[in-house]
Nucleic acid binder design. Structure first.
Length: 268
DNA sequence: ATGGTAGGACGCCTA
């Protein structure tokens, strides 16, 4: 049976509800994981989203900042809203869904951006980012009673050279510094996670999911980064059918600076 | 070499 999972940093779910509606209508993923909802739980637009055919919603938000939500056509069981770095930030939500009669665990992450200065001794936001990645090492692909696991989200790190417009020019820019990219790759491989976007589209082909708001013309300069990711346990590698990055969404009216990524599986 | 834009909430932090 087909199963499709999408991830999208929406940068305010309330402001961009029309974009969410358009995306769901056009792509019809089974589940959509949102980050940066910037919405406390009591103000989450659950009724509007249910009316779009996504009646099962898990959300973990806070006022003003961060926030994640997972929208699903089929029932979800809320598994955990894990707190990282004892900060009280809403940056993680895991839910369980069922596909072909098997439970699948879906982790939705919003990793700290880390500020501008890539030195943890003078920039506490960068220290927090590195600590967060360290703490993520406890999240393994093969734990619990699920048959398979998926980890998606805005991880705010572009790990490979082909994940940025200029490897050389971004080596000292937060999101692509060696301490981050090596930390994320160590966490990923140590946890038994497969990078499905790169399984489907290996380097040196460039892949971007984010283009800055600050560019005069984001499409012309095309200075993107792959900050958003879809990982899975090895068990889902052979049933991956397709991964697509919906680049056109960056050109929609009042867009997020991130675009959706969709993985499509054929579950046995 | 630097500043550029956006959102939330309403002075300024975060991305």
């Amino acid at each position: 049976m087909p199963l499709s999972i999408a991830t999208w940093n929406i940068n305010s779910v309330r402001l961009r509800l029309p974009l969410v509606a358009r995306f769901l209508a056009e792509q019809q993923p089974d589940a959509l994981c949102l980050q940066e909802t910037k919405c406390p739980d009591e103000l989450f637009p659950a009724e509007e989203i249910k009316a779009l055919g996504y009646e099962h919603i898990g959300f973990h938000g806070q006022k003003g900042y961060h926030g994640v939500a997972t929208l699903s056509k089929q029932p979800v069981e809320i598994v955990e809203k894990r707190e990282f770095c004892a900060k009280g930030d809403s940056r993680h939500l895991s839910v369980k869904i069922e596909a072909a009669g098997k439970p699948i665990l879906i982790h939705n992450f919003y990793v700290p951006a880390g500020g501008d200065e890539p030195d943890p001794d003078i920039n506490p936001k960068f220290r927090h980012k590195l600590d967060f990645i360290e703490e993520m090492r406890a999240v393994h692909a093969d734990t619990g009673d699920a048959a398979a696991s998926i980890l998606v989200g805005d991880l705010n790190i572009a790990p490979l050279e082909a994940d940025v417009w200029s490897h050389k020019q971004l080596l000292k820019v937060v999101s692509h510094t060696p301490v981050e990219t090596e930390g994320l790759e160590a966490m990923r491989t140590g946890g038994g996670w497969s990078d499905l976007m790169r399984l489907h589209t290996p380097p040196p082909e460039r892949l971007y999911t984010w283009w800055s708001y600050r560019a005069r013309d984001w499409a012309a300069s095309d200075r993107g980064r792959r900050l958003d990711h879809i990982w899975s346990s090895a068990s889902l590698e052979p049933v991956l059918r397709d991964i697509s990055i919906l680049k056109e969404a960056r050109g929609w009216e009042r867009p997020s600076d991130h675009v959706p990524v969709i993985a499509r599986f054929d579950i046995d």
